Amino acid sequence: MNYDDSLWLFFLLVSGIIAVPGMDMLFVLANGLTGGARAGLTATLGLVAGGAVHTLYGTLGTALLVTFAPALFLPLLIAGAAYMVWIGYTLIRSRIVVETVQGAGRTSTLKIAGRAMLTCLLNPKAYVFVIAVYPQFLRLEYGSFVAQGVVLGLITAGVQFSLYGGVALAASRARKMLLGAPRATIWLGRSVGIFMILAALITAGEGFLHYA
């Protein structure tokens, strides 16, 4: 798998994960419903900022691991792939349904952005996801870890802004769709689960060939 293929796989994986309704999407949806497009887009930018922090520690952590403890890299990569398989399996068996959206009330733009960033940073699944996934896409043969981290961060930010921004701009329609079509969100989650398992198997196999 070359670098371009790796980036496409990362893009598809991140897109699938972000598209699954969760606390971040609900935060954008709530602000879009209560404060309009401006509040929803502000919340989106706050989540993008939080995602940038996740990218930073994911990149630095992987770089330190490869530099100072390379022997641990392959076991961590395999463990991360196994975790992705487990998450994929739970998504396939789950019934993800958006049931309610809590109103956020009118508040300042700065507070909305701050709360959005905090929501992203307090999401434990995001930390585990970064720890599990980033070692599988940051490779020495692809060049500078800093440059790779910037690219992964830009991809993540672009996906976040596109998906969450779309929800913010069409909040009322998105709410009706999610509340009125529970089976759609269930099958979305299951589809993402299948993709996560396939991606984990591919990256684990590539990692084993490179680092075994």
Rank of each mutant, 00 (worst) to 15 (best):
F68N: 14
A71D: 14
G114Y: 04
Y83V: 01
H54V: 06
G58H: 07
V146F: 14
Y134Q: 07
A113Y: 08
E141S: 13
L152R: 04
L65C: 10
S94N: 02
G103L: 12
A30V: 02
L65F: 08
V128K: 01
V101S: 11
F145M: 12
Y89I: 01
F129G: 09
N31M: 13
G80T: 01
S144F: 09
N31H: 15
G51C: 12
L72M: 15
L138T: 03
G61V: 08
A43T: 07
P70M: 09
G114R: 05
F68H: 14
V130G: 03
A63R: 06
G153A: 12
G32P: 13
A39W: 03
V85F: 00
M84K: 01
V53I: 15
G153W: 10
A39K: 06
V151R: 06
K111M: 10
A116K: 11
L122T: 14
G50I: 07
V146Y: 07
L41T: 14
S144V: 09
L110Y: 05
A113H: 07
R93V: 02
Y57N: 09
G88D: 05
E141R: 14
R38I: 09
I131Y: 01
L138N: 08
L91W: 00
M84Q: 04
V66S: 03
G51Q: 13
Y57W: 14
P124H: 00
G61K: 12
P75K: 02
T34S: 15
T119R: 04
A43L: 12
S94K: 06
V48E: 13
A43I: 08
T107R: 15
W86D: 00
T100G: 04
G40S: 13
P124I: 00
G50K: 05
A82I: 15
L33F: 11
G149K: 03
R139Q: 15
V133R: 02
R38V: 13
L152C: 07
T90I: 02
T42D: 06
L56H: 05
E141K: 12
F145S: 12
A116M: 13
N31Y: 13
S108I: 08
L56I: 13
Y127I: 09
G46K: 09
G51K: 11
L140V: 07
T67Q: 15
I131Q: 04
Q102L: 11
L41H: 11
T90M: 02
G61A: 12
L56R: 03
Y83Q: 01
F73I: 03
A30E: 01
C120R: 01
P135L: 05
Y134P: 09
L56C: 10
F137W: 02
V48K: 09
A147Y: 01
R106I: 11
S144T: 12
A116Q: 10
Y57L: 09
A63N: 04
T100N: 13
Y83E: 01
Y57T: 06
L64Q: 10
A132L: 02
I87K: 01
G103Q: 13
M84D: 00
L64K: 10
V130C: 06
L65E: 07
L118H: 00
V150K: 04
V48I: 15
I131F: 12
V53C: 07
P75C: 06
L56N: 05
R95P: 03
T62E: 10
S94P: 04
A49C: 14
G61L: 08
T62K: 08
F137E: 06
A81P: 04
S144P: 11
L118C: 03
L45S: 15
G105L: 08
E99K: 12
L140F: 02
Y134L: 15
I131V: 15
